[in-house]
């Protein structure tokens, strides 16, 4: 009799662990234990990546719940049997083996084929959007992000131009259509990671790597280095600021004006000090 109680306890215990895991998973988004920011991806491709993630999550969840329900049932059932009844012992079932090999293989094959589209759009040039605006060259260096934009109305050139606009740790991009950056590194390997866009790409010394995305929302998002690049890695943080097209153009004009400030810009013919101007 005592053995039956212990067996039932373990049946409940293991079922409870599984239930707890599922419950934590369900409430996680409300407690901010989920994706960074508001939990949504803020780029079009990021949303597709999230869709893939959720698809896999559903498959895994169904499997997990099924397996644990079966486990709980078997433990409970075994504990409820009269103690004089002999346990059923079986060894090998060809049919069962075939089933649980073919079903997971089929699922894996399905995932492998299903995600190819997103992967291709993310990484393979031929599948990039037909029109996209190269907005800036982003150069990672220990321990900051230096950014070079073409002048307003001009195209981004592979080498610096006299009228380029520069910022540091502040990447501004227009929203609503695909944009791309040329990613470079000045020194060691870094990684350009914007969690809320689901964009991550290593910056490799000697390579210029195009990275594209399309912002879906206006806002400011954190850009961090995701490749341990030295002792100051932790402070290699910047922001990606998504702006409307008009704001982006206006910002660029203003940034250019500040950058070409000669200390004399006159206001009513009088010298204007720097602090007043800014």
């Amino acid at each position: 009799m005592r053995n039956a109680a212990v067996g039932k306890f373990w049946a409940i215990f293991f079922t409870a662990v599984a239930v707890l895991a599922v419950a934590v998973c369900v409430v996680a988004p409300d407690y901010g234990w989920w994706f960074p920011g508001d939990g949504r991806a803020h780029s079009t491709l990021g949303q597709k990546i999230d869709d893939l993630f959720y698809l896999i999550l559903v498959i895994v969840a169904v499997t997990f719940i099924g397996v644990n329900a079966a486990l709980g049932y078997i433990l409970w059932h075994g504990a409820s049997l009269p103690s004089d009844k002999k346990a059923l012992f079986s060894h090998g079932s060809h049919a069962l083996e075939v089933i649980w090999t073919i079903v997971p293989a089929g699922i894996l094959l399905f995932i492998a084929l299903y995600q190819m589209d997103v992967w291709a759009q993310y990484r393979i040039k031929n599948f990039y959007p037909k029109t996209m605006e190269p907005v800036a060259e982003v150069t990672a260096r220990q321990f900051e992000w230096r950014i070079r934009y073409p002048a307003r109305g001009k195209k981004l050139m592979p080498t610096p131009q006299p009228d380029d606009v520069y910022t540091v740790n502040d990447l501004r991009v227009p929203t609503g259509h695909p944009v791309s950056i040329s990613l470079r590194s000045d020194d060691v390997q870094h990684s350009f990671f914007v969690p809320e866009l689901r964009v991550k790409q290593d910056a490799v010394p000697g390579l210029v790597i195009p990275v594209w995305w399309e912002m879906t929302d206006i806002g400011s998002f954190e850009l961090v280095c995701a490749e341990l690049c030295g002792w100051g890695h932790y402070k290699m943080k910047a922001r990606v600021v998504a702006m409307s097209d008009e704001d982006f153009e206006a910002w660029k004009s203003q940034a250019a004006q500040e950058q070409f400030y000669d200390g004399v810009s006159t206001k009513d013919g009088e010298l204007v000090s720097q602090s007043e101007q800014e």
């Binding site: 321990f143 900051e144 740790n169 502040d170 100051g232 402070k235 290699m236 910047a238 720097q274």
Partner: peptide, 21 residues
């Protein structure tokens, strides 16, 4: 103002990074 600018924008070509954030 000078110190402010150096802290905000760093010094390119040296190890002084930007603390814009």
């Amino acid at each position: 103002d000078d110190l402010w600018r150096v802290i905000k924008y760093g010094i390119p070509g040296t190890y002084m990074p930007s603390f814009l954030l």
